[in-house]
């Protein structure tokens, strides 16, 4: 019987953490539809799939289709697409759940095309309604939400991180491990890696920082980011930016916070000269306290902020830095 298949990648003896969220959400769908919950496990050739598969069984998968190849370890979407197509042809799923991470973003739509199925990206909730799996997803940069059902099978869905409750692990559960041979014809490698450039990472990481300071177009120039750096030093904060500041060439693209940049989940976020476009605030929904500094009292950021200062950052930020230094004894 066609089941719910979640896509997992091997990481050491376990899997990517999102796989457990997919199993948690997938279990609810499988129960409501009365169909099995299964997984496809993608691993590079060095890994023994038994360890990661055991985790997937413990998380509720009854069968694990394992695809393994050296070319699956290097992040090539072309190779992953071939392997996942082979696995899904074997599993004949009704629903395929991916995490909306790089693998999901780069492979899921093409897989749906190859399988003659349907595609829904960025789901934040899944439910069964009249025998249909209905996905809720943001559209228009989060200014609207849409609910979408599939009219072609399999229904491939990418699910946002932290949208689903992770499955509880029960190590006593076991299942069937099915090796699916993947024949990756070298001709598939129409895209060759020439060089990988690692970005020098200094200071706290945006995704995990406790305090983040973001600068936008209103900061007014690359040199003005120095004032934000000074404030960041006092607070031990990571620096981020809006898309506009990246587009202006003031800061690197890796600083971008938002729907198409990084999602942050800090305790405190200080948005400086950022208007608060929905695509920007899509990346700060996990923040506990939002502070905005902006000259325009009508800026949409104040509709999402908890604390606001209407004023010019050029005067407010240095004064804030100086006062915090005093108060914190730094």
């Amino acid at each position: 019987m066609p089941g719910i298949v979640i896509v997992a990648t091997a990481e050491g003896q376990g899997t990517n953490p999102a796989a457990l969220e997919l199993l948690g959400g997938g279990a609810g769908l499988a129960k409501a539809l009365g169909c099995p919950l299964e997984a496809v496990l993608v691993s590079g050739s060095g890994t023994d799939p038994a360890g990661p598969a055991a985790k997937l069984f413990a998380g509720g998968a009854r069968r694990v289709y394992s695809v393994r190849h050296e070319r699956l370890g290097n992040g090539s979407p072309e190779a992953a697409l071939e392997a996942l197509t082979a696995a899904c042809r074997r599993a004949e799923p009704r629903v395929v759940l991916f995490s909306a991470d790089r693998l999901g973003l780069e492979v899921a739509p093409r897989l749906a095309h190859r399988l003659g199925g349907s595609m829904i990206t960025d789901a934040v909730a899944l439910e069964v309604r009249d025998g249909d799996v209905v996905a809720t997803r943001p559209a228009f940069g989060g200014k609207a939400m849409e609910q979408v059902a599939a009219r072609a099978t399999p229904q491939v869905v990418t699910v946002k991180l932290r949208a689903l409750e992770p499955a509880a692990l029960d190590e006593s559960r076991s299942g069937e491990l099915v090796e699916v041979p993947v024949d990756l014809d070298p001709g598939v490698d129409r895209v060759k890696l020439v060089e990988r450039v690692e970005e020098a990472a200094e200071g706290p990481k945006l995704e995990t920082a406790r305090v983040v300071i973001g600068g936008g177009r209103g900061v007014g120039g690359a040199e003005n980011f120095k004032q934000l750096e000074e404030l960041a030093r006092v607070l031990g904060a990571a620096l981020g930016a809006s898309r506009a500041a990246v587009d202006e060439g003031w800061v690197p693209a890796s600083w971008q916070i938002g729907q198409t940049g990084k999602a942050i989940a800090s305790d405190l976020y200080i948005a400086v000269g950022i208007s608060g476009a929905s695509q920007h605030t899509a990346g700060i929904s996990g923040v506990k306290t939002i502070v905005a500094i902006n000259t325009d009292p009508e800026a949409p950021i104040f509709e999402r902020a908890h604390l606001g200062v209407v004023g010019d950052h050029k005067a407010v930020v240095p004064a804030l830095t100086a006062r915090l230094k005093e108060l914190l004894g730094k």
Partner: peptide
């Protein structure tokens, strides 16, 4: 089409 949009709505925030 391969999908059907069942509903479209505007979410609310209360900050």
């Amino acid at each position: 089409g391969r999908i059907e949009v069942l509903d479209l709505y505007v979410p609310t925030y209360d900050a």
